[in-house]
């Protein structure tokens, strides 16, 4: 229903970005330092890294919810100055509006942008896409964590943003639904050419869906390595090449040496 031009841009450029939080008693927290990254239009890039390395912070800066302490962020050459519906963000915690039904939550973006038409809209389509058909009239408190997470996915999809920022979007889902959602995401991504920057703790997920994987290290958050995943699509989940990349990433993250932490991240 929404027309997409093939040359839809959406290139994110992050130049020497750093973020320092001034958090009262603990003093200054350097969350990120010297981040240089270009996500080309239509690219699907994953961010992996240990907890607290600044993945969410980076995503929030691209979304325009946080300002960079230094460096600059641009989208298609234009400086990012604040939130915009072109840069959709799926939050780590679904944060659905409790006073709206599933339908109301998904339709929120269209209504906020004053382009909602009650007859002809994509709301039902996206609710179905995330497997919640029949739950339109439910309130968030009547949903499970995974269902809420899927509503928040649909809520971002419906705006069809140029750039989709996703903070552990499938974290609360069971293995099977997660795979399903990954495939849906890939389908939407291929259909629309959306630029996607996605945070994940699941290395297999990163390898399965991304063009590039950014491995970050903590305190202060820096980019440790950028890995290109040169596997053709559609990919098989049991590709042997997967294992190599997976081992690479885990080694970079130093997990090979600290097996006790493994269970937490996987």
């Amino acid at each position: 229903m929404v027309a997409f031009d093939a040359k839809r841009s959406g290139e994110i450029a992050i130049n020497g970005v750093g973020k320092v939080f001034n958090s009262g008693e603990q003093g200054e927290v350097v969350a990120l330092r010297g981040i240089d990254l270009v996500v080309k239009e239509g690219e699907l890039v994953s961010l992996v890294g240990p907890s607290g390395c600044g993945k969410s912070t980076l995503l929030r800066m691209v979304a325009g919810l946080e300002t960079a302490s230094n460096g600059e962020l641009t989208l298609d050459g234009e400086e990012i100055k604040g939130p915009h519906h072109e840069r959709g963000l799926v939050f780590q915690d679904p944060a659905l509006f409790p006073w709206l039904t599933v339908y109301g939550n998904v339709a929120f973006g269209l209504k906020a942008r004053k382009i909602y038409k009650s007859a002809d809209n994509d709301v039902a389509k996206y609710i179905e896409l995330v497997g919640l058909k029949g739950f339109e009239k439910h309130y968030p408190h009547q949903l499970s964590g995974g269902m809420a997470q899927r509503v928040s996915l649909a809520r971002s999809f419906v705006n069809s943003p140029k750039v989709l920022l996703m903070d552990e979007p499938f974290g609360a889902l069971d293995a099977f639904t997660r795979m399903q959602m990954q495939d849906e995401l890939l389908r939407i991504w291929q259909e629309r050419g959306t630029t996607i920057l996605l945070v994940t703790h699941d290395v297999d997920e990163a390898v399965y869906i991304s063009d590039k994987i950014i491995v970050m290290s903590p305190r202060p958050g820096r980019i440790q390595k950028i890995i290109d995943v040169n596997i053709g699509r559609p990919r098989a989940r049991n590709n042997s090449y997967f294992l190599n990349i997976r081992t690479d990433i885990l080694e970079i993250l130093d997990f090979a040496k600290k097996p006790e932490e493994l269970s937490y991240y996987l």
Binding site: A63, F97, R113, R155
Partner: peptide, 20 residues
């Protein structure tokens, strides 16, 4: 978080006040 979600979805101040 409600304001943040709403703003990334394209809500302007008026909408934020009345609908969030």
């Amino acid at each position: 978080a409600y304001y943040e979600v709403a703003r990334t979805l394209g809500a302007k101040p008026r909408f934020l006040f009345f609908r969030v």
